[in-house]
Design a protein around this nucleic acid. Structure first.
Lengths: 174, 174
DNA sequence: TTGGTAACGTAATAACATTACACCCAATCA
DNA sequence: TGATTGGGTGTAATGTTATTACGTTACCAA
């Protein structure tokens, strides 16, 4: 589902994360690696509890929510993973080194996720923030709608009703 | 908390909503009115369950979650209320008629919420979406950080530690 | 008045997330 | 080497947010 977008699927590799963690002097533990592997294996945003179950499969034993959330927290802190707020879910980041804008286009119909660099966006934010002394930290930009593929299939298969609905609802995760 | 921002607190009035609903031929029921009143009385994003309790106080009886969520759904559908995704909370919209961008600056320290019109943002989104055939519906732009007031007080009162932390955490709701 | 539809009431449950505390292990240093 | 310390993990319990399902009520129109 997270395929044919403007940026290639996910450019993040376990090896690059390993290297970055070494450089930063932080521990890329077995659990954190497994969590990232699991996220990379899914093709799209993954809920914390889906990740949990993936970890359980990989480990062959049950794990509690904090285990998944802690791994996610670490991966987010270091920019390897981004939380998709409108989905309560997580995706590997395309640009782990660059703390840039990271705008996400999210298809409400098929769940596809496209991370896109929007140049000029950051400047616009900063410029506007400056006018009232706001200091910007985390930026969340999520644009929901219908991807090209689904516009075609939806129009052909089921008329515009479903697609129109998908324009405004949170949509399915799949 | 949601006061001295770039846009005046909340310009939405019950009367204007009443009028718009009449124009649109939709029912602004007692419950929906109470919900909106409650949202206006809070000064900032309100969680669904806080709204629930406010409704209970107003009605003098207990109400279930669906009651609150249904009212919120209606108010959102018609642009009277915006959901703040990074807070799991809701605020009255400044511009009920204009389905424009609605970017939110959110202070992680005091919870202040500033709705800001970012001209050019929408065009940037549309332009970029066009390049890969994405049809944009709902837009979510939330910029977390520290408001001007809190930069001063935080620096004076507690050093930069707390403020630095607030730059990256979800922060309190208060 | 009756029939249809939108709105609401209520109980139960699902989904998402955090707290608190115990334990383990690796790095450091006396 | 042994003690200490701090980060990481295991686990139980709980908190918070959101939805499903179904019955009832209220409103409007025929």
């Amino acid at each position: 589902m997270s395929g044919s977008g403007p940026s290639p699927a996910y450019t993040l590799s376990i090896e690059s994360v390993e290297r970055i963690c070494a450089e930063r002097g932080v521990r890329f533990t077995a659990l954190r690696r497994l969590a990232l592997e699991a996220l990379l294996e899914f093709n799209g945003p993954v809920g914390a509890y889906d990740l949990l179950r993936a970890l359980e499969r990989k480990l062959g034993k049950s794990v509690g929510p904090p285990t998944a959330y802690r791994a996610l927290e670490f991966l987010q802190e270091h920019g390897f993973v981004t939380r998709i707020e409108t989905r309560n879910a997580f995706v590997p980041s395309s640009h782990p080194d660059d703390p840039g804008v990271g705008a996400f286009f999210l298809c409400n119909h098929c769940g596809a996720t496209f991370e896109v660099d929007l140049p000029g966006l950051e400047a616009e934010f900063a410029r506007r923030a400056e006018t009232f002394g706001f200091r910007v930290g985390r930026r969340v930009v999520e644009l929901q709608g219908i991807c090209a593929d689904c516009q075609h299939t939806a129009a052909a298969v089921e008329g515009q009703g479903q697609a129109a609905k998908a324009m405004t609802t949170k949509g399915s995760r799949g």
